[in-house]
Write a protein that binds this DNA or RNA. Structure first.
Length: 313
DNA sequence: CACCAGGAATTGC
DNA sequence: GCAATTCATGGT
């Protein structure tokens, strides 16, 4: 949060964030709007609505973009605490969610001399790596997405959230908070398989919930580890968390710039498509392609994912 | 109706 | 160690 204080202004009824270049709110919203089935935020035009937990209550924010270099955050509900506290919490959430602490200038400079990256940063100029700040959510979402199509993953997430999460309704819209690990750790196996999770995935989710409940895995603890390798080692101790999931979480929750889910099928499709290949790239080809981008694998991967949202031709 | 999906654990050699 | 197998259901 090095630059947070200098970029955020409290206006009493709302806060504004001056966004560091390069940044495009439009690109961020395009990514947030990628699934009709998303249940943890709502996009209406150019406004993004999201609920976040405040103490034991729920605050609901509306995020908009009054000027190109400014994000505005208002509250639809302050969760029973002081408005200024809830606004600050909302601003901190958006700051992390949209990865506004990152300096993208070096990545964009690297891209100017690289044909592939140049295409990506031109097409999606200002896109930030949208995060999943809650560790339990990031782990669960990764596990839910293992080996199934994304549309089904969103359906599973919605069922999971609506079965075990908490909700608040404001102005006719319902906003959900992702379930707490303690709640999930208490479930019987059948309560998860009933939602469409396979037996194994149900076990994985319950296992992750137990690790988190007993404090064996915490975001703070993982952030304190010296490097990505240590993070992957720690996370893969959990049954159900392999290298793909560990790198996914490192990338979207812990903000490791070198995190690289190299076995990601979506990434394979995106690379194949952007480079005009007839088949999916091999692991070796991916290694060669990404080698010059070392230190920026996470952003390169994220931009490739964004590329999948674009129409085929 | 096949084929596959933003994988991981287990098994077999 | 590494490759093959199993899991297991909805989307297209």
């Amino acid at each position: 949060m090095t630059r947070f204080n200098t970029h955020v202004e409290d206006h009493g009824t709302h806060v504004t964030i001056h966004t560091p270049d390069p940044f495009s709110y439009q690109q961020v919203v395009a990514y947030l709007n990628r699934s009709e089935n998303e249940c943890l935020h709502r996009v209406d035009g150019a406004t993004v609505y999201k609920a976040i937990p405040i103490n034991t209550e729920i605050a609901v924010m509306a995020v908009s973009n009054p000027t190109p270099s400014r994000i505005e955050i208002r509250l639809l509900e302050s969760g029973g605490c002081a408005v200024s506290d809830a606004l600050l919490a909302a601003a901190r959430y958006v700051w992390e969610w949209f990865d506004l602490d990152a300096n993208l200038v070096p990545f964009y400079q690297l891209a100017t001399g690289d044909p592939v990256l140049k295409t990506l940063v031109t097409d999606y100029y200002g896109l930030r790596l949208i995060g999943v700040p809650d560790l339990f959510e990031a782990l669960c979402w990764a596990v839910m997405g293992q080996q199934i199509n994304l549309a089904f993953a969103y359906t599973l997430k919605r069922r999971f959230v609506e079965a075990f999460g908490t909700r608040t309704t404001v102005r006719g819209h319902t906003y959900w908070i992702f379930p707490d690990a303690c709640r999930i750790s208490e479930l019987t196996p059948s309560e998860l398989t009933a939602l469409g999770f396979t037996t194994r995935k149900s076990e994985y989710l319950a296992e992750i919930a137990r690790w988190m409940r007993r404090g064996a895995i915490t975001k703070q603890g993982l952030l304190a580890l010296p490097d990505l390798e240590s993070v992957v080692d720690a996370l893969t101790d959990i049954r159900g968390v392999g290298k793909w999931t560990a790198n996914y979480v490192a990338m979207r929750c812990l903000r490791h710039r070198s995190a690289f889910p190299i076995d990601d099928v979506g990434l394979h499709h995106a690379v194949s498509r952007l480079l005009g290949m007839n088949q999916k790239p091999t692991r070796e080809e991916l290694g060669v392609l990404f080698a010059p981008w070392h230190g920026y694998e996470a952003y390169a991967t994220f931009y490739f994912w964004r590329h999948l949202l674009a129409p085929e031709y």
